[in-house]
Design a protein around this nucleic acid. Structure first.
Lengths: 344, 344
DNA sequence: GTTAGCACTCCTTATTGCTGAGTGCTAATA
DNA sequence: TATTAGCACTCAGCAATAAGGAGTGCTAAC
């Protein structure tokens, strides 16, 4: 593990990986001999490659084939070899966020553009977080025994919930409840809505405390731990562009992972847990998602002002164009920050 | 076209199709000879099959292979041969609509259950219609220059829309607007909101008519022609269960049709246009969707009280189990009717 | 009208042989 | 000692060939 690689070995490994990223075919010694400016014969390259294989950075699919990078090789590439193009402020093509529309639409558009730009499968999670501030709450009667609760949080995150009542409620009561809820809750972060406050509200509701309790329960539950983050995906069929992923069983598993979204939720949670705020790269087995052992997953966390955050992810073959992907995610991240933060 | 088929030919055709539905392999004369209770030798069957081929009901993939049904054959099967199991009130397994939750959730669950029961890809469209009645409208301030409009229609169809204001608006005005809108619009069908009414409302809004106009525009546009019906899908990866659909290009096209949903919208529109309220079966080329020439599509329209309606669809290989599919859709259709109509 | 029999077709699968890319090793070279 | 040329060897991929088998169409007999 700890062996230092000679500069030459690093160069050769770099060349192998880059070549493989482009072609998807095992790369042989002769190719490297010509491809690099090292001016070494294929025989020498062969010796070095033999070493690299022994060290676990590359792998031979079968005797008398070229070499392909192992997970360990990719890891080294991503961590050290790959050059980040810090400066080029690459504009995400075609990304025109039209208006301050519902966040839902913005996210759907973002994920679609990202997929069509990168040619990989993409996902984005609706921002979540415990320190999100309430903008306002509105209860309205929808029918005799149903209330509609609309909750708006910062960033124009809107949630509806139909609340079933056990018994009727007159308009005045609803008005009072609205007043009560909004006076006490608006502007608060979720974390600040504690049991004490809830008890206080119940008390103030007087005879209607029973009803208030259920309403509060619903409201609290709805936002506080909106159990599963919602996720939008796009470009799942891009995986068919990579032969190594597109045999039918593998493809089926991958795509249904995108359809179900359950596993993606795991991915989001995993990404969130890491304190790391930057870009994360999961290579093969490193991925928290079972079905993606043959893929690489690159994720980024984007912030929404007050501790609210979501995850963007790109899923593709191990030989994905890491440089560009990481780059795209970086700029997208900042763009998202801007979009959501410019409107208070 | 008009030739009447002898009873024997019909039986043989029926047998061929049923066998092919099960196996997916071309079926030969010997198989039929044993499979049926006709007690005919394979030679006789061969003669009949030769006739059936000439009439266009079956087709030979290559010389010296068995026969498979042509689109025309399937059509006859669906229209005449197939026995509808009218009586068995087949319960859709596991379909437990838990609560009067948001319609969105109900639909998502329905489509998922249907997919897992049938092993085909499924879709459902959110009900739409011009004769839908408004339950109520609610405008609320979200920030200085943003209003949130919440519109609830019958069946608890909820829509949110952020409306941008050009200039600020005080609370009183908003209150008035709400009163105005609700007094005049609640309980109306969309069709009843005409230009006359709109003009009247604008007038009543007095000095704020400018703002009211935009608000009304937004509200009207939002419901009247909610441009594209929303569509939920499930089980797209089921197509991998049918080898004839799962080669990578075909699969990719199909699945991306499910991902994009654009084409599904066409399908929904097409289904709606047909005056036919029952079950529709599109076989191969009959389908309005380009990419589904190799599939069959079965759709049903479900009603929601006042002329509002949505579409359920099942997409699978041509050799789909028509009997069960049609049956499932029928019962599901009535179940949906019940779910949505029991709560006014 | 039905059936047995037979020649024929052609898909499928397995076998074989060949080619070419690529390796590993050894011996010669700088 | 590091590099290189040369050579024998391996093996996936491909094409050509062969064997097997399912199924048909036709003819002649029942």
């Amino acid at each position: 593990m700890g062996e230092e690689l000679s500069e030459r070995k690093r160069k050769i490994l770099h060349a192998i990986i880059q070549n493989y990223l482009e072609t998807g075919e095992p790369v042989g010694s002769r190719t490297i001999s010509k491809y690099t400016d090292l001016n070494l014969s294929s025989a020498t390259i062969r010796n070095e490659m033999s070493d690299l294989e022994e060290l676990g950075y590359i792998v031979q699919p079968h005797t008398s084939a070229g070499r392909i990078p192992s997970d360990k090789g990719y890891r080294l590439y991503v961590d050290e070899l790959m050059q980040e193009k810090e400066d080029e402020i690459a504009e995400i093509r075609d990304l025109m966020i039209e208006r301050t529309d519902k966040m839902e639409n913005v996210l759907k558009q973002v994920v679609r553009v990202l997929a069509s730009n990168t040619n990989y499968a993409t996902m984005i999670s609706v921002p979540q977080g415990t320190s999100n501030r309430l903008k306002f709450i509105q209860l309205s009667r929808v029918s005799e025994l149903q209330l509609l609760a609309v909750v708006v949080a910062e960033g124009n995150l809107i949630r509806n919930k139909i609340i079933e009542l056990e018994e009727g409620m007159n308009d005045e009561t609803i008005l009072k409840l609205n007043l009560l809820l909004n006076t006490n809750l608006n502007g608060l972060q979720i974390a600040e809505i504690n049991f004490g406050l809830i008890a206080k509200l119940k008390e103030q509701a007087g005879i209607h405390s029973g009803v208030v309790a259920t309403v509060l329960d619903e409201v609290a539950k709805m936002i506080e731990f909106e159990e599963e983050p919602e996720i939008y995906t796009s470009g799942a069929t891009n995986i068919f562009k990579y032969p190594e992923l597109s045999d039918s069983t593998r493809a089926s598993e991958l795509i249904s992972a995108f359809e179900e979204k359950k596993q993606l939720v795991e991915l989001v949670k995993d990404t969130m847990d890491e304190e790391n705020t930057g870009i994360q790269v999961y290579i093969g087995d490193e991925s928290p998602i079972q079905n993606m052992k043959d893929c690489s997953v690159v994720t980024a966390t984007y912030q929404l002002g007050n501790g609210m955050q979501g995850t963007i992810g790109i899923i593709g073959p191990k030989r994905m164009d890491y440089e560009n992907v990481v780059d795209s995610l970086k700029t997208l991240k900042t763009q998202l920050d801007n979009i959501f933060n410019k409107k208070t």
